[in-house]
Computed example of a mutant assay.
Amino acid sequence: MNEDRASAPPAERGWLIFHLAGQPYAAPLTQVSEVVRDGDITPVPGAAADLLGIRQLRGRIVPVLDGCRRLGLPVDAGESARRRIVVLSHQGHLVGLRVDAVGDLLDVSGEVVAAPPGRVVREDDPVEGVAPCAGGFVALLDVRRLCRLPEGLEAVA
Rank of each mutant, 00 (worst) to 15 (best):
D4Y: 13
D4C: 14
A6W: 07
A6C: 13
G14T: 15
W15H: 15
W15P: 14
H19W: 11
A21R: 04
A21I: 02
A21G: 06
Q23D: 10
P24D: 12
A26G: 10
A26S: 07
A27D: 01
A27Y: 13
A27P: 11
Q31M: 05
V32I: 14
S33V: 10
S33T: 12
E34N: 14
V36W: 07
D38T: 15
D40L: 14
I41Q: 11
A47T: 13
A47I: 06
A49N: 14
A49W: 14
G53I: 12
G53N: 04
G53K: 05
R55A: 10
Q56L: 05
Q56R: 10
Q56G: 09
R58C: 01
G59A: 08
V62R: 05
V62Y: 00
V62S: 04
P63V: 10
D66E: 04
D66F: 07
G67M: 04
R69T: 02
L71H: 02
D76L: 05
A77T: 10
A77V: 10
A77E: 12
G78Y: 03
S80V: 02
R82N: 12
R83H: 03
V86E: 06
V87F: 03
V87A: 07
S89P: 03
S89T: 11
H93C: 03
V95C: 13
V95E: 00
G96D: 01
G96L: 07
L97C: 04
A101N: 02
A101L: 07
V102S: 09
G103D: 05
D104I: 09
D104N: 11
L105G: 08
L105A: 09
D107P: 02
V108P: 06
G110P: 01
V113A: 11
A114L: 15
A115E: 13
A115D: 09
P117V: 05
R119K: 13
R119S: 10
V120Q: 09
V120I: 12
R122F: 03
D124P: 10
V127M: 02
E128R: 15
V130Q: 03
C133H: 15
A134I: 01
G136N: 06
F137K: 12
F137V: 13
A139V: 03
L141S: 02
R145T: 11
C147N: 00
C147S: 11
E154V: 00
A155H: 07
V156S: 03
